[in-house]
């Protein structure tokens, strides 16, 4: 079988070393990881090529016209960041609100909550 090999490069951000890691993928499977100096690098690279995850931080509107900074309580798939931000653009929160309070649930169908990152009286 002549499966095409895909080569991906990932800059590791686990530590300040910033290793440039090469990942070879064949038929959707990782066949080789090189350039990393530690196992954490390999894990990071694996996630990055399979399903990269990011914490989304943005703002939503408060009923008083001001902005409330928010974040997803956990990382969500990078591919869904724009969907999430679009969904959140319609959210208007009524104060008071406490830091850490959930202001939106299951953003972009990820099952992840969006929480306030500051309090507002």
């Amino acid at each position: 079988m002549s499966a095409t090999t895909e080569k991906r490069r990932v800059t590791c951000i686990v530590c300040p070393s910033g290793c440039r890691i090469n990942v070879e993928i064949e038929g959707g499977k990782i066949i080789e990881i090189s350039g990393n100096q530690c196992k954490r690098g390999a894990d990071y690279a694996t996630t990055e090529v399979t399903q990269p995850m990011r914490v989304l931080t943005t703002t939503v509107r408060l009923e008083n016209g001001r902005l409330l900074p928010v974040k997803t309580s956990h990382p969500i798939p990078k591919a869904l960041l724009f969907d999430a931000i679009k969904e959140l653009s319609g959210v208007v929160v009524k104060p008071p609100v406490k830091m850490g309070q959930v202001v939106y649930s299951n953003v972009a169908g990820t099952g992840v909550d969006v929480v306030a990152t500051r309090s507002w009286d």
Partner: peptide, 20 residues
């Protein structure tokens, strides 16, 4: 409002407003 604050002090990744 982005994350990246507090890894050394709180051992968790906070946003600026949370750290403040």
């Amino acid at each position: 409002i982005h994350t990246g604050f507090g890894l050394h002090i709180f051992k968790e990744e906070l946003t600026g407003p949370e750290y403040a």
